[in-house]
């Protein structure tokens, strides 16, 4: 399916978007919304919810394939996403990889679509 997908960008992820997503999914874990808590936990800042990264990747996919074509997605998260990160959604052999601007992979997503 990779030949049907093209590279797309999402972000930069902002604290406002992280807060908005926290509200949408009712996940106010302080590591996502409380800067002081995140720093005490040893992080440079709050981090995006992992499912937000996956949502952004799949949004780039369904934007290209249509809203009902996606059958399954298996995501592996490999690095945290911080406010300010710009994400590139790059097609791979079996899905997409999400990378930061410096090339750091943050998620790999294997995809299956209707009829595949």
């Amino acid at each position: 399916m990779s030949e049907r997908l093209h590279e797309a960008t999402r972000g930069p992820v902002s604290r406002v978007q992280i807060a908005r997503y926290a509200g949408a999914v009712n996940d106010f874990n302080p590591v996502h919304v409380d800067e002081e808590f995140a720093k005490r936990a040893g992080l440079p800042s709050v981090i995006a919810h992992g499912p937000l990264t996956v949502a952004l990747a799949l949004d780039a996919v369904v934007e290209q394939l249509g809203p009902a074509a996606l059958r399954s997605a298996q995501a592996r998260l490999s690095a945290p996403v911080f406010p300010g990160d710009e994400l590139t959604v790059v097609p791979t052999d079996d899905g997409v990889e999400v990378r930061k601007a410096d090339g750091t992979p943050v998620a790999t997503v294997a995809l299956a679509r209707d009829g595949a």
Partner: peptide, 30 residues
């Protein structure tokens, strides 16, 4: 995620299960 995570959270906050919700992060998901 918008309804399953609150359902999962309700389970994870159950003291019987003994999970530290405040330090939780997400790993793989399908």
């Amino acid at each position: 995620v918008s309804f399953t995570m609150p359902q999962i959270e309700a389970f994870l906050r159950d003291p019987d299960f003994g999970w530290d919700y405040s330090r939780m992060v997400h790993g793989d998901q399908s």
